[in-house]
Design a protein around this nucleic acid. Structure first.
Lengths: 152, 152
DNA sequence: CTCAACTGAGTTGTGCACAACTAAGTTGAG
DNA sequence: CTCAACTTAGTTGTGCACAACTCAGTTGAG
C-alpha cells in the first residue's frame, strides 16, 4: 500500500538540508557584503589563504566544483583584483591562481567572519563538530549511492 | 591574536552543509530525470500533491521562495503541462496554481522517490528525525540572527 | 469618494551549479 | 616519430536564488 501523501521523513530531511543551506548562504551574503564577495568566492579565497598558488584543477577538487563554475568565478575574482591567473610554463593547459596583494590584504577583513557565523548557528564546539561529522557521512553516503546508480 | 589560518570548525560546518545540499540535489537530479523535474520543481509538485489549488503566495511561504524564483518555475511547469495558472476572480492580483490531470498522474511515478533517497542517506528513521530537527533548529537560529543584524 | 500606501505577481540582471561541448596542450603506445 | 587518447580550461545553455524593480489591483485613512 502506498503512502497517503503525508509528508515523508526523507523529504523533510532533504528540505531541511536545502533550507539550512540557503539560510546559511543568506547570512553569508549579509556578512560578506562588506568584502564584496559571494559565498562561493569566499570559499575560493579561504582555500587560497590556506595555501596560495593553486591550479584551477586543485581548487576544483577541494571544493568539488568543475571548470564550468570555477572559470567564470575566478574571472570575476581576477576582475576584482583579488587573484592573478597565469598559465603554467611547463604545462600550458594548467592555470595557476595566486593571490594579489589586495587578495592577501582582504584576509584581515575576513578574520572575524567565522565567529559571526558560529555565533549565529547557536551551537557549541561539540555540537558543531558532531553536525559536521554527520553531514560529512551523509554526503559520503549519498555520493557513493549516486555514483553506483547510473552505470547507464 | 588571530588564528593561524587552519580550517575553522564553523567554516567546516558551513562547507559541510553546502556539500551535503549539493550532493542530495545531485542525487535528485538523477532520480528525477525520469519525471523531467528539477528538485525545486519537485518540491512545488510535492506541495501541490499535498494540497491542490494554492496561491503563488502560499507556495512561496511554504518553500521560502519569492516570486522571482517561483514565477518562472511555475511558467515552466505550466509549459510542461503539469499545472494550470489562473487569476483569482475576487482578487485579480492573486494567481491560483492547480494540478492538471498530467500533474496529478505524475504522482504515481514519484511515489518511490522518498524510499530511494532515504536509502541513499543510510540513516534509520531515528537518525533522519534527529538530523531534521537539528537542521531545523540551525535554520531557525541562523535566520533569526540574520534578521536581527541589518536593521540598516 | 479619493488617492496614497500597500500587496501579489511578474520582470530584469547577476551569479552560482552543472551538463555538454570546444579547443589547446600533453602523453604514450606502437 | 606520430597520432589517437587523454587532460585542462574555458564556453554555452538551462535553471535556480535573490535583489531590485515594475505594474496592476486592492484597501483604508481622511
Amino acid at each position: 500500500m502506498t503512502d497517503t501523501g503525508s509528508p515523508r521523513l526523507d523529504d523533510q530531511l532533504c528540505f531541511g538540508l536545502y533550507s539550512a543551506s540557503r539560510a546559511v548562504t543568506s547570512l553569508y551574503r549579509v556578512v560578506l557584503a562588506d568584502l564584496d564577495l559571494t559565498y562561493p568566492q569566499y570559499l575560493v579565497m579561504l582555500a587560497l589563504w590556506e595555501q596560495d598558488d593553486r591550479l584551477v584543477k586543485e581548487l576544483g577538487a577541494e571544493l568539488s566544483l568543475d571548470s564550468g563554475t570555477l572559470s567564470p568565478l575566478l574571472k570575476r575574482l581576477d576582475a576584482a583584483g583579488l587573484v592573478l591567473r597565469n598559465r603554467q610554463a611547463d604545462d600550458e593547459r594548467s592555470v595557476r591562481i595566486s593571490l594579489s596583494d589586495a587578495g592577501k590584504a582582504l584576509r584581515e577583513k575576513a578574520v572575524g567572519i567565522p565567529d559571526v557565523i558560529g555565533d549565529a548557528m547557536g551551537l557549541d564546539a561539540a555540537g558543531l563538530a558532531r553536525m559536521r561529522d554527520e553531514l560529512d557521512r551523509l554526503t559520503q553516503s549519498v555520493n557513493a549511492y549516486r555514483e553506483a546508480l547510473p552505470p547507464a
